[in-house]
């Protein structure tokens, strides 16, 4: 994963960068499988490696394939990244070990979900019952976020298509489009 990330930073060919970020997502999905988080791995593989790579490729077909050389030096950004990374790693030192039975996350709500969801919800997949039932409000919020994203894209790019006013499409002439581009 570190190798892929380094290659993504160094390469100027955006097509290769998009494909490499897809590979990065697939490796992350494998990592989640190793941590036995199958639902998360499934999402990462389908969304991170699949759809977002596709969307990036679609964007590339509109813009150019090569990145411009950066105009100013990279010393300050690298400094900020290193300091933030060091702070994050320092933070993880206090975290309980992976799978530790006495970790706060494993003591508070998780035992209740594991013991009760079978009788309360009656669904074998505990992840689904947490997502859709115990955390129903969260998932509703997430759905609305996705809906909002689509509306935003439509407002910005999906101009001129209106079933009840079909004339609107013709008002966007090729000259207009070139000016906007």
């Amino acid at each position: 994963m570190a190798l892929t990330a380094y290659a993504i930073i160094r390469l100027r060919n955006l097509f290769a960068v998009v494909i490499l970020s897809g590979i990065f997502s697939l490796l992350a999905a494998l990592l989640y499988v190793l941590l036995t988080a199958v639902d998360v791995a499934f999402t990462e593989a389908s969304v991170g490696a699949g759809i977002s790579t596709l969307l990036m490729l679609a964007t590339l077909s509109i813009t150019s394939e090569y990145e411009k050389k950066p105009a100013h030096s990279a010393v300050l950004p690298i400094l900020i990244v290193v300091v933030t990374g060091a702070a994050l790693i320092y933070g993880t030192l206090d975290m309980p070990l992976y799978g530790a039975a006495d970790a706060p996350a494993n003591l508070h709500l998780i035992p209740r979900f594991i013991e009760q969801s079978g009788t309360e919800i009656g669904i074998p997949n505990i992840v689904t019952s947490i997502l859709a039932s115990y955390r129903g409000y969260d998932t509703l919020g997430e759905t609305v976020v996705i809906f909002t994203a689509a509306i935003g894209v439509l407002v910005l790019l999906g101009r001129g298509h209106n079933r009840w006013r079909p004339g609107m499409r013709k008002s966007v002439t090729p000259e207009d489009r070139e000016e906007e581009v």
Binding site: S61, I146, A149, L157, G160, H161
Partner: peptide
């Protein structure tokens, strides 16, 4: 919603006029 969103975003990005 997710399926419709993904289809919309892709088609709008690549088709521009759809």
């Amino acid at each position: 919603t997710v399926a419709a969103t993904m289809v919309t975003i892709f088609f709008v990005f690549s088709g521009q006029d759809f």
